[in-house]
Simulated scan of single mutants.
Amino acid sequence: MQQVHGRPAHPQIKGKIEWYHKTMKNEVKLENYYHPDQLTEVIGEFVNRQNNKRYHESLNNLTPVDIQFGRGELILKRREQIKNPTLKQRKIQYLNQKLLAL
Rank of each mutant, 00 (worst) to 15 (best):
L87K: 09
Q12K: 14
K88G: 08
L62R: 01
K16W: 05
Q38R: 04
D66E: 13
Q97M: 12
Q38I: 00
D66N: 11
V47K: 11
L76T: 00
Q68Y: 10
T23S: 13
D66S: 14
I75K: 06
K91W: 09
E27M: 14
K88W: 07
P11N: 00
P11A: 00
G72C: 08
P8V: 02
I17T: 06
H35M: 02
G70Y: 05
Y94F: 08
P36C: 00
K29R: 09
V47E: 07
V4Y: 13
R90F: 13
L99I: 12
T23D: 07
S58D: 07
L30I: 04
Y34N: 02
V28R: 05
K91S: 10
T63W: 10
F69N: 05
N96K: 14
R79S: 01
F46L: 02
P8A: 11
Y34R: 02
K22T: 00
E73F: 12
G15E: 01
S58E: 04
T86K: 15
R7N: 06
L76D: 02
I92L: 11
E41H: 14
Q12A: 13
I43W: 03
E45V: 12
R71C: 03
F46Y: 05
K98M: 11
R79C: 02
N52M: 08
H35C: 01
P8E: 04
H21Q: 08
K98R: 07
Y34M: 01
Q97H: 13
V65H: 15
G6Y: 13
Q97D: 15
G72F: 07
T23G: 09
H21A: 06
G6F: 13
I67A: 12
